[in-house]
Simulated assay, not measured.
Amino acid sequence: MASKGRRLAQGAMAGKKAMEKKSKEVQYLKTIIPCGMAAAAPPLGPQLGQLGVPIASFCREFNEKTNHFKPGIPMRTQITVNPDRSYKIDMISPPSTYFLKQAAGIQKAAMKGGDEVSGKISLKHLYEIAKIKSDDPGFAGMSLEKVCKCLIGTARTCGIKIVPSLDVEEYKEFLTQRLEWVKEEEKRLEELRQAKMLRL
Rank of each mutant, 00 (worst) to 15 (best):
K30D: 14
A56C: 01
L100R: 02
L51Y: 03
M37I: 05
C148Y: 00
V81E: 11
S122I: 04
A104F: 07
K21Q: 15
L8N: 14
K70M: 12
L151Q: 06
E186M: 13
L200F: 05
G153R: 04
D84N: 14
A39Q: 09
E185N: 05
S122H: 02
L166S: 01
D84W: 14
N67W: 14
S93I: 08
T154V: 11
K187C: 00
A109E: 12
M19R: 13
S3T: 05
K146Q: 13
D136E: 12
R199Q: 14
A9M: 10
P54G: 07
T77K: 05
I92E: 10
F139P: 02
K112C: 09
E169D: 13
K172W: 00
R188H: 11
E169C: 07
K133S: 02
I89M: 05
L151I: 01
E128H: 11
L175A: 06
H68N: 11
L100I: 14
C59K: 05
F62Q: 02
K65R: 15
D90G: 01
G159I: 05
D90S: 10
P34D: 06
K187S: 10
H68P: 01
G113V: 04
F69A: 09
H68F: 12
I55T: 14
K172D: 09
I132Q: 03
M19A: 14
K70Y: 12
K101L: 11
I55V: 15
K146L: 08
M13H: 06
I89V: 11
E180K: 11
S93H: 09
G119M: 09
A9Y: 00
V53C: 11
G49Y: 05
S134Q: 13
M197L: 12
G11R: 15
K149N: 08
M142N: 09
A2T: 09
K133C: 09
T176E: 03
F174A: 05
Q50M: 08
P137Y: 03
R85E: 08
F139R: 02
G72Y: 01
C150V: 04
N63R: 03
P94W: 02
N82I: 06
K124N: 06
